[in-house]
């Protein structure tokens, strides 16, 4: 048991903000995945709205409240309605027999892996510098 606990230490108990952040981020991430993976175009648009609300919540958590409201006002009020209008105006794609994706999936995943690597590097360096500086300040 000790070895297991040493290898996989229990995560520290989250603070209140972290406890809010985790479900919010999960919601945003799942919605973002649905935007690109769901085959139904209208579901994509709804998931996009979910993502936008999640991002607005993240802004509120970052104490950028005006930005959170702007996000909802501009994105959810106008951009998502425009997208829905565009979906309705260009019908016929929804039930088409052709595949929803093109043949670039491999390339795209390669690109995302590269971005993920860069992001990981940033993550490590950011944790080593910025978190420490904040802890000092």
């Amino acid at each position: 048991m000790d070895i297991i606990q040493q290898l996989f230490p229990l995560p520290p108990i989250p603070t209140l903000q972290q406890a809010v952040f985790i479900p919010l981020a999960l919601f945003t991430a799942v919605c973002a995945l649905l935007v690109v993976l769901s085959p139904n175009l209208f579901h994509n648009a709804l998931a996009l709205v979910g993502t936008l609300f999640g991002v607005a919540g993240i802004y509120a958590l970052l104490e950028a409240e005006f930005l959170a409201i702007s996000q909802i006002l501009v994105y959810v009020w106008s951009i998502s309605t425009l997208i829905t209008f565009a979906i309705m105006l260009s019908r016929g794609m929804m039930f088409g027999a052709t595949s929803k994706t093109n043949k670039q999936a491999g390339t795209a995943i390669d690109g995302i892996v590269v971005i993920g690597f860069i992001g990981w590097c940033n993550f490590v360096s950011a944790r080593s510098k910025l978190d420490v500086s904040i802890a000092v300040a």
Binding site: V35, S99, A108, I112
Partner: peptide, 10 residues
Amino acid sequence: CGLYGALVRR
């Protein structure tokens, strides 16, 4: 996610 969608979707 956005990059995947932008590259892959038809």
